[in-house]
């Protein structure tokens, strides 16, 4: 077992390089499986992301932590590689080669989808909260905000001073949404047709959740990533802005 210990020690000492090796293995395996097992019907990136979610589940079950596989010390580097810093840095890099005119042409669509997206998610979240038995406008607003993204939920909840169990529920809804976007979007992209920059912009604005939309776009069409990212990165900001203020007043007025 000496040998095993040596390997573990090296891996733990070099977290980022370990992450490169692990993710490289996952992607290589996924693309091979996609090519030979599903004959390309299930996209390689899609398989890789499903693998990732499976690893996240395994990590979370073993450690009881909230950061998936990266809570296991050997895989800590995956948390760095897949953290918000690298995610945002690579998203910015995707803007290289995007067409500025395409953005200008779809500016209105982007704005409309952003406002509609936040309002729509919030409304459905608030309705679910109401049917789930929550009656105070603060609770309903927080749960609606969680339905926008799992970042907006706790920010709104903290601003309105709600109970931590309500905040936990709002985060839960946001996390489910984010993962649902990753998994469901590629399955229906043929029917809904997200195949132009304009639709990508609308997709980013309506769904918003950055992790979900960035993963989904990587599967559907990597060249459309910058367009979806452009709107989705404004979505959380808009949510943080309107949920604890305008939307809270609206909910309070309706009740």
């Amino acid at each position: 077992m000496e040998l095993f210990e040596i390997i573990i020690k090296i891996l733990i000492k070099n977290p980022l390089v370990t992450a490169f090796a692990v993710i490289g293995t996952v992607i290589l395996t996924s693309y091979t499986l996609s090519k030979y097992l599903t004959k390309g019907r299930l996209n390689g990136s899609s398989v890789a992301i499903l693998f990732g979610l499976l690893m996240a589940y395994a990590g979370g079950s073993i450690t009881g932590g909230s950061k998936g596989i990266s809570d296991i010390p050997v895989f800590a580097g995956i948390g760095l590689l897949g953290g918000s810093m690298m995610r945002d840095f690579t998203i910015v890099a995707t803007a290289f080669g995007a067409d500025f005119n395409e953005l200008k042409r779809s500016g209105l669509a982007g704005l409309v989808s952003l406002f509609l997206g936040v309002l729509f998610s919030f409304t459905i979240g608030a309705l679910f909260a109401w049917f789930g038995g929550y009656t105070s406008p603060e609770d309903i607003t927080t749960i609606g905000a969680g339905a926008v993204t799992f970042v907006v939920g706790p920010i709104t909840g903290a601003a309105l001073g709600v109970d931590s169990s309500v905040i936990a529920l709002s985060i839960g809804i946001g996390v489910v949404k984010s993962i649902a976007v990753m998994v469901i979007t590629p399955l229906v992209s043929k029917v809904i047709r997200i195949d132009s920059p304009r639709e990508a912009i609308i997709f980013g604005g309506l769904l918003g959740t950055t992790s979900g939309t960035s993963a989904a776009m990587a599967v559907i069409n990597p060249s459309l990533v910058p367009y979806a990212a452009m709107t989705s990165t404004f979505y959380t900001g808009l949510g943080c802005l309107v949920c604890p203020s305008v939307l809270y007043f609206a909910v309070a007025a309706i009740l």
Binding site: V26, G52, A56, Y57, G82, R87, V175, V176
Partner: peptide, 24 residues
């Protein structure tokens, strides 16, 4: 870094709180 996008997204998916989502 543009080409590192997909690997980063895969790493990101491996660090999601899937357990929480399934138990929520």
């Amino acid at each position: 870094w543009q080409n590192m996008y997909i690997p980063v997204v895969v790493a990101m998916s491996a660090t999601q709180d899937v357990v929480k989502a399934l138990r929520s």
